[in-house]
Every structure is written in structure tokens, then in C-alpha cells.
Computed example of a mutant assay.
Amino acid sequence: MKFLIIIPAHNEENNLPFTLESLQQQSLRDFKVVVVNDGSTDGTSEVIRKYTDQDSRFETINLQKSAHQPGSKVVAAFKKGLETQNINDFDIICKFDSDIILEENYLQTVADVFAKNSDYGLVGGLLYVEKNGDWVYEGNSNKHHVRGPMKAYRKESFLQMGGLRETLGWDNIDAILLQNSGWKEVVIPELHVKLIKVKGADYTIKPADYYGRYFYFLGLNRFLTYVAAAKEAMKIKSPAFLFQIISSYEKCKSQNLELKISKDEQKVINQQRWDMFKKKWFKI
């Protein structure tokens, strides 16, 4: 199987070398990497050039700097990289972050899993972060969800869901739409991916505003949003946090901000969330 790996990067001169080196050391050699240099002002270009000059599997494109908005910026950069390639030349489409380190057998293991399971549409490992000198499970998400930094899609499933959406929540929308089309999302727990930078470290958006916008752009209805907001507020035991999330959500709704998903896709997402709610609370 041939991999197309697209890596959006903005001011990642300190982290990107680890990512590209781990790719160059992969036991599976049949891949192409496109690094999308998204308006970097540091030494990111020089880092990229080191690999493109010596290895024909590495390519790059340069974009003008865009505003840092959670979700939409990284997907927009990903799409620019995708436009430079003929997707028909590849079997697996990957969106990787520029601050991860992969084990040498990562791509080969993913390829083997896809080859043995024709209904697998999205595959990835588990994220680990450094804590007190040790690499520990990042733990911000369940172990059955492939996180945004290391998405690997079967080409057919990627095309069927219409690619990635330039919106907050894109890395949950993809999984829901794939599963609704009959594809499986599978995490390979023995594959550990080291995340150098903590998720959201560059975001300037406040947590409550983030959640409110996230639930809105995910297409959730009011009931499911309020339930999800209450869950987040309970985690930190803050009633005020609940109302701040709701306020952010309602603000987006009153402004009628554009969604990147269709009405039918909204129904799919809400139905999936409703099914999860019933299963957890009513055992239905």
C-alpha cells in the first residue's frame, strides 16, 4: 500500500525534525510526504529543505500566513497539500501533525491492518506525552478514537465522506460520517505516537468559548449541546462553566455561522450522539 502523508506546519522548527526523521526511518518505504509550510517565520523552511533536498519522497508547498483558528486552519493547509497530488496514485491518505514521533514500524503496521480488514476506513495509534521524563498515555480521549495528529484513511473511505471539513470538530465529524457509511474506525493500542507539543497550546480561545463553538460547528442540537456542556462543567465542578459554554453556543447560533456539514450530515451526527446518550444513561 502506498501512503500519501500531508503535514501542515507553522513555526515548527523545533518539533518538525523529529516528525520527519521518524518518517524517514520507517520500515515501510512506499510513501510520499507533503509538508505544507503555512506562513512560518522561523526556521521551518530550512528544516523542510534538509529532507526535500536529499529524499525525493519529501515535497513541500509554501502558503501565506493564515489566522490561527482551531480546526479550520490546519484542515485548510491539509487541503492545499492534497491539491498538489493525484489521489488515485495512493491507497492511504494521512493527515499527520508536525510535532509527533512515530515508531519505525508505524506505517507498516497500519498498512497490514488495512490489508487484512477491508471494512477499516480510519486507523491510528494512541497518543503519548512526556511527563516527568516518561512517556504516558495522553488520555484526553477514549481509546477507540483516532486522534487528529495521526489520521490514516483508506482512500475509498476518505473520498466517500467527502474529505475533511474546515471546521472545529473536524476530527470527530470524519469518524461519525465514516461509521455511518459502514466503515470502521480502529485504534491500534500497541502503536504509540509521541506528541511533543500539548494539544491546544497555541490556541488563544478561552475553554468555555472553545466548547461552545465546538458543539455548534459539530452541528449538535440544543439538547445534546446542553448535555455535553453539563458533562464538561461537572468535570471541573463549575456551574458557571456550563452557562459560559451555553452562552458561546447560543452566540454562534444567533449569528447563524456557516456550518461545513450538510443538513443530512447534521442528522447523522445528532443521531449518533443521541444513541451514545441513550446507551450510557438508559442502557438502551
Rank of each mutant, 00 (worst) to 15 (best):
Q25N: 15
S66V: 07
K95L: 10
N37I: 00
L102E: 04
K73N: 14
A76L: 03
G71I: 01
Q25C: 13
A67I: 05
C94H: 02
Y106R: 00
E103T: 15
Q24S: 09
Q26D: 08
D89R: 14
R49C: 03
F31V: 01
A76K: 10
A77P: 08
R29T: 12
E103H: 14
I61T: 07
Q85N: 11
D55V: 02
D89G: 06
K65C: 00
L20G: 07
E104S: 14
F90L: 00
Q26W: 04
H68L: 09
A77H: 11
E104L: 08
D97N: 09
N86T: 10
Q85E: 09
K73I: 02
F96Q: 07
R29W: 03
G81V: 01
E103S: 15
S45K: 13
L102V: 08
K32H: 14
R29L: 11
G43F: 09
T41F: 07
H68Q: 15
V36G: 08
A77G: 06
G71V: 02
Q25V: 03
D99V: 02
T52W: 03
K73E: 06
L28P: 01
Q69H: 15
I61H: 08
N105W: 02
G81W: 02
T41S: 12
V34Y: 04
Q25H: 08
R49A: 09
F96E: 04
S66Q: 14
A67C: 03
T41D: 08
N86K: 05
F78A: 11
V75Q: 13
S98D: 14
Q108N: 11
Q69W: 13
Q26N: 07
E83Y: 05
Q85I: 12
H68A: 09
N88T: 03
S40L: 05
L102M: 08
K73Q: 14
D53V: 01
G39T: 02
F78V: 03
F78L: 08
Y51Q: 13
E59A: 10
G39C: 03
S72M: 06
Y106A: 04
V74C: 07
F96N: 07
S27G: 00
Q64N: 13
T52I: 11
V75T: 12
G81F: 03
